[in-house]
């Protein structure tokens, strides 16, 4: 089953829309609440990343009885050094974003902690694709 959601860059009040919908769906499918919690935490982080750094993005969630795969694709500046971005505390967030309580440099590390598989590919100046997979 495929679900698609759009993300608007810079609109923090709407961040969490996709996570909230995915959560609702997984609850209705009786996925273990603690697994749902981890997926939703990871997806929310990924959503906030797009809002904070990119111009716009799209989320595709593919759910089967065994697993959920979520692909978050954005049009944005891209990540020049993915290994560096994966380090805890490293952040490129602007002052404005930090003032809103985001941009602590925990986004990607936190996503990695909460999913079974994480793939990131990025092209500087074009955008980033983050793929998360968690097995139920």
């Amino acid at each position: 089953m495929i679900f698609k959601y759009e993300i608007e860059g810079g609109n923090f009040t709407k961040a969490g829309n996709a996570s909230s919908n995915v959560k609702k769906t997984l609850k209705q499918l009786n996925v273990n609440p603690s697994i749902i919690k981890r997926i939703v935490v990871a997806l929310y982080e990924a959503e906030v990343n797009v809002v904070a750094h990119a111009y716009k993005g799209e989320i595709t969630a593919d759910i089967t009885p065994e697993r959920i795969c979520i692909c978050i694709e954005d049009d944005g500046p891209g990540i020049p050094d993915i290994d560096l971005a994966m380090q805890e505390g490293y952040s490129t967030a602007s002052q404005k974003v930090r003032e809103m309580g985001f941009g602590a440099g925990m986004g990607l590390p936190n996503i990695k902690k909460n999913v079974d598989q994480l793939n990131i590919s990025s092209q500087v100046g074009k955008g980033t694709i983050v793929e998360l997979t968690t097995f139920f």
Binding site: L29, N30, V31, P65, F136
Partner: peptide
């Protein structure tokens, strides 16, 4: 849990 689609995951999907 409310389980609007029953308790079996495949059936629920």
């Amino acid at each position: 849990t409310m389980q609007p689609f029953g308790s079996e995951m495949e059936e629920a999907m």
